[in-house]
């Protein structure tokens, strides 16, 4: 059993319009593994991810109770340094959002914000993160071009590289391949398998198939409730709960 990186304890979240999107969630997330959060739309997967890097601070949240321990520290504590937290917990979104800058600047932006000035360090981070995201070969000769000129699949890998350049500890991915073709999807998934050696990865997949392909651990969310969490091999072959089984076998959702 791998070391536990994140512990979610009794987490409940209610948006200000009254929607209760998470109800009493308890979940352990192991380090150096891919943990998959899956389930039908509106289950609360994105909501949970956005709690893990406090991006929910932007949305109108009414109440949030419980704890999220990252290496033993409660990140929901109001005293948490949110900026530092977001550098430790990077996030890749469903729709690639490249920033309105060049490819290179997209990658160095996070580091520059953190105060990194050494050219050689930035240079090295650009190359290292692009290689990790399996994008280096495609863009190494056009780093100064506007990032928006890349294809959708390339943009998504650039977003992944941008997060990697920050050298986070945890990477959150919210349906990162939902807009990609099968080949690009394959590249992203392969990159994730490589990355999990050094990072803790939490992925919301865009299909049950992807969930089954990538999961070391998996948690099934249904209408704000965590129904079942187990090892990937377990949950997709012998789910304990009837509701999980129905979903995995495609009987609802």
């Amino acid at each position: 059993m791998a070391a536990i990186k994140i512990i979610v304890q009794n987490l409940s979240l209610q948006y200000s319009d009254g929607t209760e999107s998470l109800r009493d969630i308890n979940l352990d997330i192991p380090a150096n593994n891919i943990t998959v959060l899956f389930g039908p739309a509106g289950g609360g997967k994105s909501s949970l991810l956005r709690c893990l890097n406090r991006l929910n601070d932007l949305t109108e949240v009414q109440t949030i109770t419980g704890k999220i321990l990252l290496d033993g520290e409660n990140i929901l504590d109001p005293k948490t340094d949110v900026i530092a937290l977001r550098r430790r917990v990077g996030m890749v979104f469903a729709r690639p959002v490249v920033l309105p800058m060049s490819i290179r600047q997209n990658l160095t932006y996070g580091l520059e914000l953190a105060g990194e000035k050494h050219k050689s360090k930035l240079e090295e981070a650009v190359e290292r993160s692009l290689k990790l995201a399996a994008l280096w070969e495609e863009v190494k000769d056009r780093l100064e071009e506007a990032a928006v000129a890349l294809s959708g699949g390339q943009q998504q890998r650039l977003c992944l590289a941008r997060v990697l350049a920050n050298q986070p500890e945890v990477i959150l991915l919210d349906e990162p391949t939902s807009g990609l073709d099968p080949i690009s999807t394959g590249k992203v998934e392969a990159a994730l398998q490589e990355l999990k050696k050094n990072y803790t990865i939490i992925l919301v997949p865009h299909s049950v198939q992807q969930a089954a392909r990538t999961a070391d651990f998996a948690a099934f969310f249904l209408q704000g409730e965590l129904v079942e969490a187990a090892e990937g091999k377990e949950i997709f072959t012998h789910p304990k709960e009837k509701r999980t089984e129905d979903y995995v076998e495609g009987r609802f959702g």
């Binding site: 991006l55 900026i83 977001r86 996070g110 914000l113």
Partner: peptide, 17 residues
């Protein structure tokens, strides 16, 4: 798009940055 702001904030940018 809200995604731009979230993208930057998720990288550790402050509101002003």
């Amino acid at each position: 798009p809200q995604g731009y702001r979230e993208g930057a904030l998720a990288l550790g940018a402050t509101k002003w940055q």
